[in-house]
Nucleic acid binder design. Sequence first.
DNA 1: AGCGTCACCCGGACGC
DNA 2: TGCGTCCGGGTGACGC
Length: 286
Amino acid sequence: MPELPEVETVVRQLRQGDGERGASVIGQTIARVTLRWPGHVARPSPREFARRVSGQTITGLSRRGKYLIFHLTHGFLLIHLKMSGDLVVMGDHAPRDKHAHTVFHFRAGGQLRFTDTRKFGRVYWVEHAQEVVGALGPEPLEPGFTARRLGEMLKARHRALKPLLLDQTFIAGLGNIYTDEALNRARLHPLRRSDTLGPQEVRALWRGIRQALQSGLRHNGASIDWVYRGGDFQNHFRVYDRADHPCVNCGTPIRRTVVGQRGTYYCPQCQKPATSLAKKVKESEL
DNA sequence: AGCGTCACCCGGACGC
DNA sequence: TGCGTCCGGGTGACGC
């Protein structure tokens, strides 16, 4: 599931263009679009989408949260990879891929393929990118995201940390993997209430979030399931998908529970619940 | 209003 | 082999 580091990795590769993933998309003019599965188009209508995007030149590429933002001559093309999406530039005669549901054909030859096994991904064409990403929370790796600011944000809410961190309007870019990794680094229990953290704990969470994301970026993201993006962060998980494996810090077996309908991994020794939570947590584990 | 919970969309993996 | 179940990002419905 592409989260901030995976999406950023894709953005960098599409921007630079390398041997493995083809030429840069910057400067390419989209001659036409093939919509093999129109359900990919979130807005406007599939027909209108194809019309709006065709003939436009990609002048820039950026990221906001988990969205890729292609800057066009007029308006913006936004793509969300959701769980299984991937974007690759290929030659026109590259082998067919049954999961390449949306394909952007370049005037100069070559194509940008949006492959998406699960079909959860979405594409948008809008006049202003804000129409789609306007409600997102702050970018956790940008300078404006300080520990102080995080502290104020946490104080203003009264929720368990895990679902709050997954809320894209709270912070943009964290998904299930990096949330669990961040909480582990911060030594905070996933069910801990956001407004009960002391200053040291806020700072630990701030550092945990940033270190987990930066570590992911350094490894070019994680390649899990059948989606290979060149990254190897999956070999450096501390808790995610490591149920019953020893905690890298204390050796205690990592535990898997469900929080907010999401598989949640944590170390029961390093990430102890606050005393007021302990009873509730114990009950849910029996 | 804010929060928790659940269903939904998909198809591959996995257990029986 | 073939069935049922699980999984998840984001959204929207619903109830408290």
